[in-house]
């Protein structure tokens, strides 16, 4: 009826072109919707978001022991990083909108923690997930009991040094003084004693107080190496400095935020004394540092908490990494 002006053939032609156009448009729309949806549905990504927005998603990864598996990591907001705890592995950056592939192979079955390695805000350390490695090859051995447990140390108790040095103790001058003293230089002695305890035990000698502190510094130096302290410094910079400060003074970039978070938790939880100390510890403060033994510090780092915002690092650091870190922490007190 419409095309009677033009005759039958033209009408058929118009109709065919109309039909072709409709098919083309429909195919184009379906293609534009379907193709990306299809590929998107088949791309299993692990999304990283700041902890406030959900952290890792998914946050549980399943794998089999001794079988390599590949993870496709992407960040939905800011720069994150990825590493598996206690593996001493090179972390990879997880960049916003980019996909990073990483292939892992874990030998022993067990539950591993993966974590964010680039600071992404106050709650960066909450960005953790687990890799559940299945397999029956070898049952996981019993976990080593940390030293603070075997020693029965209460890591929540105050540990103040009643006496502190007037000048910064020097390991170099201490070395000369210590040469002729009957001192226990074993690693075990170092780990289990606080600097103040050693200082106190040296009271039987004829040394002055400042000389005794120098000797303590030398003992601490001789039980650590420049390499371990350097490694500790690197770990400290990456993991601790944002709160505890680059110079250890407890004044990191998040210190104010933590204090504010502590304040608000006091207001909301009336009488909850345990939440009062959100501010990070000052490692340059000799009263606290000289009263703490390496074993005590290890406990604090392993478990975290202590009524503060201190994260739990036990599932992240290897034992060696923690001792390196502790070796570095004492360099805020001693001149090596």
């Amino acid at each position: 009826m419409l095309h009677d002006y033009a005759g039958h053939d033209v009408a058929a032609l118009v109709k065919r072109s109309e039909l072709v156009s409709r098919i083309l448009i429909t195919v184009a729309i379906i293609g534009a919707v379907g193709t990306p949806l299809f590929i998107w549905a088949r791309t299993p990504l692990i999304h990283a978001r700041v902890a406030e927005n959900g952290g890792w998603s998914p946050d549980v990864i399943h794998a089999n022991a001794n079988q390599p598996f590949t993870l496709h990591l992407t960040s939905d907001d800011v720069v994150h990083g990825f590493a598996v705890g206690q593996m001493d592995m090179q972390s990879v950056d997880v960049l916003p909108g980019k996909v990073t592939d990483i292939t892992l192979k874990i030998d022993k079955p067990g539950i591993y923690t993966f974590f964010c390695t680039r600071w992404c805000g106050l709650n960066h350390w909450r960005m953790r997930g687990t890799i559940e490695v299945g397999g029956s090859s070898s049952a996981p051995g019993p976990a080593a009991v940390p030293m603070y447990v075997t020693l029965g140390l209460d890591i929540d108790a105050p540990h103040e040094a009643p006496v502190i040095p007037i000048n910064r103790p020097s390991a170099i001058s201490g070395q000369k003084l210590a040469a002729n003293l009957p001192i226990d230089r074993s690693i075990d002695y170092y780990l289990k004693h606080s600097p103040y305890q050693v200082f106190d035990e040296l009271s039987t000698t004829s040394l002055t107080e400042s000389q005794r502190w120098d000797v303590v510094a030398s003992i601490w130096q001789s039980n650590t190496t420049p390499e371990s302290r350097a490694n500790g410094q690197q770990l400290y910079t990456q993991n601790c400095a944002a709160c505890h400060g680059e110079n250890g003074a407890g004044n990191g970039v998040f210190a104010d935020d933590l204090a504010a978070a502590g304040e608000s938790s006091i207001q909301t939880m009336a009488g909850a004394d345990s939440m009062t100390m959100q501010s990070p510890v000052d490692f340059t403060n000799p009263i606290r540092m000289l009263g703490a033994s390496p074993a005590l510090l290890q406990g604090k780092i392993l478990r975290g908490g202590m009524g503060t915002g201190m994260p739990m690092w036990g599932s992240i650091f290897t034992e060696e990494q923690i001792w390196d870190l502790i070796a570095y922490l004492y360099s805020f007190q001693f001149d090596y």
């Binding site: 680039r118 600071w119 910079t237 990456q238 601790c240 400095a241 709160c243 680059e246 990191g252």
Partner: peptide, 10 residues
């Protein structure tokens, strides 16, 4: 020219 900084690492 550019520079990049993580929190805690000036």
């Amino acid at each position: 020219v550019s520079v990049e900084a993580d929190p805690g690492q000036t």
